[in-house]
Simulated scan of single mutants.
Amino acid sequence: MKILFVNPLKDYIDRITESVPDGFEVKIMSLDSDVSEMCEEAADADFIISGVDVPEDVFRAAKNVKFIQYMSSGYGQLSLPVLNELGVPVAQMKTHSISVAEHALTLMLTLLRRIPASMELMREGKWRQELDETSYSELYGKTVGIVGLGNIGRWVGKIVHHGFGANVVFYDNAEIPLTVSELISARQVSLSELMAVSDVVCLSVPLNEESDRMIGRDELAMMKRSGVLVNVGRGEVVDETALIEFLRDGRIAGAGLDVYQSEPLDLSSELLRLDQVVCTPHMAGVGWENVQRRIETVWHNFDTVLRGGVPSGVITTVKRAAVTVDA
């Protein structure tokens, strides 16, 4: 069976090709390839493994495909209605939640403990001389507000509550089962209440029409002056211009950002010059353990499809492949 792997990250190429089960062959194509060539290869593919930004024409040319697996937590530039029109199950990766949640926690602690500022003082040869204890904070007892209680948000909630003794509130425009919120001891609130009561606001919401610029000037104005904002979701969820203004004026205490409105982040961005901001290059999901989990998920999902089951992470209305083959 033919697998077309389009726009792969380099860390996955060898690991995928070295682990191909019997009965499968993999064709790897970068986005540098001609679109017509990609469409030609897609036409007789049984499965597609996709990176981000793969042209829509490639998916539409895959008339015989049984299942499409994104290697990312998002699903590129294509809207869910477009993916639903394909008539086959399309899945996103859910394995990254642990890595992203741990990264979110790292950003929180780095901001609260003022690690970059402390390192800068040490570089200047200052050993506690200018250390102001009132500007350092613990996570214990703080209120962490999670915007988007999906897989990432749930991991964040469990870690900060059970591991650090923080209180957790959350906002999500999707219906969250009561058992889920009870499991991580999180209380559902409105977005405005979350912004007002949280010491740490953690954004882990996907980008869609409802979340685009969800956190704007009005929402930032609700935050405590001592509050910090962490974004491990999508950069477009935040009005970046307003965020910079609030940080510059000291109207919020800090921000930890892994995602941005435009990526890669422009080197001239003021975010890189503000002392109270910690920036990382959209790397929250990075980690060799996560690479291994994603590859295992690919082969497990392919096997599930061929056995007539529902693969994990399906985001489309079609959950099972229309045609199954004895595996």
Rank of each mutant, 00 (worst) to 15 (best):
S137R: 15
L149I: 14
G87T: 06
R307P: 02
A101C: 04
V54L: 07
W299V: 10
A186S: 08
P264V: 02
K2N: 13
F67W: 09
T304W: 12
R234T: 01
T95I: 07
G250I: 08
Q77M: 11
V65N: 13
S190K: 07
N173I: 13
C202T: 13
V20Y: 04
N208V: 07
D44W: 04
G74Y: 07
E289F: 11
C202V: 15
M71K: 01
G87Q: 10
R217G: 00
I98Q: 13
D53Q: 08
D249L: 15
G256V: 12
M122H: 05
L203A: 03
I115A: 03
V82L: 09
I13F: 07
E245V: 04
A284L: 09
A166R: 03
C39Q: 13
Y260L: 06
A196L: 07
M214E: 06
V318Q: 12
E270F: 03
V205Q: 03
V6R: 01
A186G: 10
D258T: 02
G165H: 08
N167A: 06
V205H: 00
V90Y: 05
S226E: 15
M71F: 10
L4N: 03
S185R: 13
M29V: 12
D275G: 12
H103S: 12
I16K: 03
A43W: 02
D11H: 12
R128W: 13
A42K: 00
L191N: 04
G157P: 08
D132L: 13
G23E: 11
T297M: 15
G141D: 09
M1P: 12
K10Q: 15
A221H: 00
G157L: 08
D239K: 07
D14I: 04
R320A: 11
M283Q: 13
N208Q: 07
Q92P: 00
V156E: 08
R114W: 13
I3R: 00
F47T: 02
S262R: 12
V88W: 05
N301A: 13
R114G: 00
F5C: 01
D14E: 11
I48R: 03
V228N: 05
T297G: 01
E209Q: 14
D258M: 12
R217C: 05
E263C: 05
L149E: 09
V58D: 10
F24E: 01
R248F: 07
I176Q: 01
E124R: 15
G313P: 07
G165V: 13
I184Y: 14
M38R: 01
V54I: 14
I115F: 10
V286T: 14
S181K: 13
L9D: 14
M283G: 00
D53C: 11
D303H: 14
G309M: 06
V65G: 05
R187L: 02
E102K: 02
H103W: 04
I16H: 01
L109R: 02
L112P: 01
E240H: 06
A166S: 14
K126V: 15
Q69S: 06
R15P: 11
L203P: 00
S192D: 15
E40T: 09
P8H: 09
E210T: 09
A186E: 05
H96S: 04
M1C: 07
F170C: 05
V169I: 15
G285R: 07
A166N: 05
L4T: 03
Y75D: 01
A253D: 09
G145Y: 11
V100G: 02
S79Q: 12
L107P: 04
A174G: 02
